[in-house]
Write a protein that binds this DNA or RNA. Structure first.
Lengths: 197, 197
DNA sequence: CGCCGAGTTGAACTGAATCAAGAAACGTGG
DNA sequence: CCACGTTTCTTGATTCAGTTCAACTCGGCG
């Protein structure tokens, strides 16, 4: 089973003395949620950030025709939140729910400030996260603008090989901006091409 | 003619004592660039952020087939930079050039640090910019995933009414992820529908 | 003038969506 | 452990939004 404690994450990703945050972390809220449980619904104001220690979340919208569009998958070691909603205090247009039973750490603004006061390095980490997020979104836009369904799928598999195995295929399709049937065909086509070779 | 000094921008957008930054600002590089001039090319590492005081820049990629894909337009009052490249020191996949003769302020990391030291409020502003950028990118992804060419066009017109008038139509098409011919038809269709009503 | 880039239009084409049906895999309760 | 319903995935037939290609118009500008 996949698991990554926030502490382990910090030791890997921030340049910090070991266990700096232990005191704060101990007081922080950890939630165990079941497959299908919601952490955020359209219309609510998002007041938390979530760090996934184990399990898998999805962050998505539902349009007027009832179709869902996945903006992000968050397996262990990832953060999710609607930054627009939480930062600007606007009602969110998005949902967050669990694709698998999951264990998440819940941050509110206050926690973040406390952690930053405690260790400026945490602010640095936070800044890096914002920048990583921007690169990611930007590359995805570029891909949506320039690549075919097949190219986008190949890119997805290359970038998130593990997710392909854990996420239902129709949700990957939604992430890629194609229909489930479309993705199924793309895969068949690729398989047969690889076979012939 | 459109013009917005950085000073005026700060007075509007940051909660600061008037002219706090004057000393730093005076030492900062201001560039006057001509239509068609480049500020960043694919393969270079982006070491600057640009604030547009007047004119109009575009931020875009060129794919293997030679097609350009516009990620962002930057008229006066906007920042542009490749945050992935500048933050992570990676060669950029993008270009920045001028659609109109423009006047831009050039920031490097050092300037940003100095300004932040001088006034922590500048750090706050910077943070707000990052969050705004993320919301923007996220909403655009959502739109690309869920909306038709026509819907994306209407959204663009609503969000950037002025840009529609200043940017050549084929570049708007590129921003929307459709062909110039496609956009032309969408507009004709809309015009005829409005006329009939 | 004559050229050139920008925009438009038409006709043919195509990648991907839709609709409909069936097969496989999965989990839950009896 | 089986039986059942539900969800996931696949496949085929058809349709459609948007592309491609090519020709033509228009306005600016040397």
């Amino acid at each position: 089973m996949h698991y990554l404690s926030f502490n382990a994450y910090l030791n890997e990703n921030a340049d910090l003395p070991q266990d700096t945050f232990a005191p704060v972390l101990d007081r922080m809220k950890r939630m165990e949620i079941k497959k299908g449980d919601f952490l955020l619904r359209q219309g609510e104001i998002c007041t938390y950030s979530f760090f996934v220690e184990s399990g898998l979340l999805k962050y998505y919208s539902i349009d007027e025709k009832g179709k869902t569009h996945v903006l992000q998958f968050a397996p262990e070691g990832w953060f999710v939140t609607d930054r627009e909603s939480s930062f600007f205090n606007r009602p969110s247009s998005y949902f967050i729910d669990a694709l698998e039973d999951s264990s998440v750490l819940v941050f509110n603004e206050n926690d973040v400030c406390q952690l930053t006061d405690l260790q400026p390095q945490f602010g640095v980490l936070n800044n890096r996260l914002l920048h990583r997020h921007i690169s990611q979104l930007q590359n995805r836009i570029n891909l949506l603008l320039s690549a075919s369904a097949e190219e986008r799928y190949l890119e997805f598999v290359k970038t998130y090989p593990d997710l392909m195995l854990r996420v239902p295929q129709h949700l990957v399709a939604s992430y890629l901006g194609i229909t489930p049937e479309g993705l199924s065909r793309v895969r068949r086509e690729l398989a047969s091409r690889n076979f012939k070779k």
